[in-house]
Design a binder for these strands. Structure first.
Length: 708
DNA sequence: GATAGGGTTGTTTTT
DNA sequence: CAACCCTATC
């Protein structure tokens, strides 16, 4: 459905029909209600705690839900119940931590009802913000064709801003572009001044001259974003928040959205909390359910503050508070270890998960000689588990940091075990993929500074200084792509500048390829075309160019799912972690069984497996060496460990290598405090040795013969 | 003055 | 492995 902007009022009437294809409610849920109401056995499917919740959906409510307590199930049933009672899908807003989680919940509602609830406002804060901003860009004065930058783009733009701000006049060391961006983000997400953020997180930059200069840099950064039509992740929240203060829009939202559910509330930050507060205030019945677990708050580095969940009842009069405490995921032994661990956190609400599963075997603490043997142990153990009848997709390896996965990947590859990595640089952030995407960005938004710089850097004869000059010249002209193809552009707008002739010639040739692009073209076809004319560049630049060209084919295949460039780009920016490059290890190509997962703990949030391995449990790695003392940061680190352990249903392997190979030689690291502080009763100790790297035979388990 | 290429560095976690 | 700095070359 397209929207023709005739008058402002008309624009607003279309609000709930625009942008999402499957947006209009195609079903009369009241009819389904009659047919389905008796089929869903709420009383049988939910426990008493959960039933209480779905029977009290009016007014503000806080649900404290421990790990594995059927939190998602409760939300899904709550949504189903609302729909059955006649609430339209488009009257429900469901805020989740990832867009994948939103899709899965909708799928489960669909399974329950037999029909897909089309038109729900479901997604992350950022994705929902984008949906509103695409409709109301005009209202708050941002370009309607704005492009969302990912984090590395934002940092790159920050670097350009720093370069323009004459930082060299300050003698002291100035924050890097990454740190500068991070300070700005904290300031926005936590509602603090720049000075406060510096005192809080970066006290080494506490210097009036630096702070003044930073403010200047941020002004340039902001101006650049506005000129180029770029939004960073923080802008999505800032502008959404701003939009909610616009009377007309606010009234419309208040009228149309009747129920709000927010998952993972412990990981919201100040501005997200404020957004929710504003939306509830607009809602006459204040129907909101906020779900979370302060013990699982692991995103403080993004400004998240678990106190939002604790303060929620204080902010909302007559807020009901419910707890769901029964754990349906893990055996009691795993819960005992997790409970023991989290009890060491002082700044936490005391609560214990209550087991419902039958007893099994205690978690293992496995000590190995070094990180090579750790990888070897994991690979061997996976093979044993497979021979025991476990499936690959029932096993996960959860790491504190992306680089912890490298050696494990190598061993799994060597043993032909198929796996998928969910860590590190995402597929769509790899250099050659971004090279292609830069061309797509310019179709939507021909003044996108970052994309131009990326393209300039691909061209022989144009370096950083020519790039700045050319961009400055094209910023103020219409239709830069066309202009860059003509000699006159260079002779009129860049008169007297020293730009190598070779560079100009190459640039003209390159841009000539882009002349016939149109935003009406299908993204897939565009990608094929662009890949073709980038092939020689990729060949020249990368040794593994063949692999990279294959990636671009994958990109084109993925793009088939989208019919417009704008939607394709939005989806890429907002679904970073959902769309993975599958690093399959194929014994034979035909076998497409779901693989084993190697993931960071952060990305494993909300998921579960029968067997979980947690490697690198030694001081300096987990907890990370960046965390000192026993303050809030250290407690968050412990919560990360807690989240990892509570992913496991049946078997949990905690692994500590005694030595780790660093840049030069081995370093000895002590056992992680998260292990040593535990009551030894809650785990079984095992030591695993290999007689040599070549001969990967286990000599034996010294104290846990029943390691399987 | 500007670019290209070599060598060195150092890496938490993500919307 | 990619983002930096330094230096040789155009």
């Amino acid at each position: 459905m397209s929207i023709k902007k005739k008058a402002e009022d008309e624009e607003e009437i279309h609000v709930f029909e625009f942008y999402e294809v499957d947006h209009e409610p195609s079903l009369e849920f009241k009819d389904i209600a009659r047919a389905k109401y008796n089929e869903i056995d709420f009383e049988n499917d939910l426990n008493e705690e959960q039933l209480t919740i779905i029977n009290n959906l009016k007014g503000p409510m806080l649900v404290i839900a421990g790990a594995g307590s059927g939190k998602t199930r409760t939300i899904v049933y709550a949504v189903a119940k609302l729909l059955l009672s006649g609430v339209k899908p488009s009257e429900i807003m469901l805020v989740t931590f990832t867009n994948k989680a939103a899709n899965e919940m909708i799928k489960r509602v669909e399974t329950l009802l037999g029909e897909r609830p089309k038109g729900m406002w479901a997604g992350t804060f950022h994705a929902l913000a984008n949906r509103f901003l695409r409709i109301y860009s005009k209202t708050i004065g941002i370009k309607p064709n704005y492009v969302i930058m990912d984090e590395s783009d934002s940092v790159a733009l920050m670097k350009l801003s720093i370069d323009l701000a004459n930082v060299s006049e300050i003698e002291e060391r100035f924050p890097s572009s990454k740190v500068a961006k991070s300070i700005l983000s904290y300031s926005i997400n936590c509602n603090k001044t720049i000075k406060d953020v510096i005192l809080w997180k970066y006290s080494n930059f506490d210097n009036p001259k630096i702070i003044l200069k930073l403010e200047e840099v941020y002004k340039i950064y902001k101006k650049k974003k506005a000129e180029a039509g770029l939004l960073d992740f923080d802008d999505l929240l800032v502008f959404w928040n701003q939009l909610l203060s616009e009377k007309k829009v606010a009234q419309l939202i208040a009228k149309n959205i009747k129920y709000i559910l927010v998952d993972e509330y412990q990981d919201t930050n100040y501005i997200q909390d404020e957004i929710i507060y504003k939306i509830i205030s607009l809602n006459p019945e204040r129907n909101i359910i906020v779900v979370g677990d302060d013990a699982q708050s692991i995103y403080a580095f993004r400004g998240a503050n678990y106190e939002n969940i604790l303060n929620f009842p204080k902010k909302h009069a007559d807020c009901k508070i419910y707890y769901i405490t029964y754990n349906y995921r893990s055996i009691p032994e795993i819960l005992e270890l997790a409970n023991d661990s989290i009890d060491h956190n002082m700044r936490q609400f005391k609560k214990n998960m209550r087991p419902t599963k039958p007893s099994g075997i205690k978690p293992f603490h496995v000590q190995v000689a070094d990180d090579d043997e750790q990888a070897l142990f994991i690979a061997n153990q996976v093979l044993k588990l497979l021979s025991e009848g476990y499936e690959l997709n029932e096993i996960a390896i959860l790491c504190r940091a992306a680089f912890h996965t490298f050696k494990i990947e190598m061993q799994l590859r060597a043993k032909n075990i198929p796996f998928e990595v969910r860590a590190g640089v995402a597929f769509f952030e790899r250099a050659h993929v971004k090279d292609v995407l830069a061309h797509l960005h310019l179709i939507e938004n021909p003044h996108d500074e970052l994309s131009w710089h990326r393209i300039f850097s691909m061209i022989q004869g144009i370096g950083s200084s020519s790039a700045v000059k050319i961009f400055t010249a094209l910023l103020n002209i219409e239709n830069p792509i066309e202009q860059l193809c003509s000699k006159e552009f260079y002779s009129t707008h860049l008169k007297g500048e020293r730009i190598p002739q070779k560079g100009i010639k190459n640039l003209m040739n390159h841009v000539a390829n882009m002349r016939h692009f149109s935003s009406e073209d299908r993204p897939e076809e565009l990608i094929v075309t662009i890949s073709k004319f980038l092939e020689s560049y990729i060949q020249a630049r990368y040794e593994n160019w063949q692999d990279r060209m294959d990636d671009l084919k994958q990109l084109a295949i993925y793009a088939q799912n989208y019919d417009s460039v704008k939607r394709f780009l939005d989806s890429l920016a907002l679904n970073r972690s959902t769309i993975e490059a599958k690093r399959w290890l194929l014994g034979d190509q035909s076998e497409e069984k779901a693989p084993l997962i190697i993931s960071t703990i952060h990305r494993a949030k909300g998921l579960e497996w029968r067997v979980v391995f947690i490697p690198m449990l030694c001081e300096g790695f987990f907890p990370s060496s960046r965390v000192y003392g026993d303050g809030e940061a250290f407690e968050e680190e412990r919560r990360v460990f807690y989240v990892a352990a509570t992913r496991a249903k049946e078997k949990l392997y905690l692994i500590t290598p005694a030595m780790i190979r660093g840049f030069r030689g081995y370093d000895i690291h002590g056992t992680s405090q998260f292990i040593s502080e535990l009551n030894p009763r809650v785990y079984k100790k095992a030591t695993v040795r290999f007689d040599s790297k070549e001969n990967e035979k286990n000599i034996g388990f010294t104290s846990a013969a029943d390691l399987l």
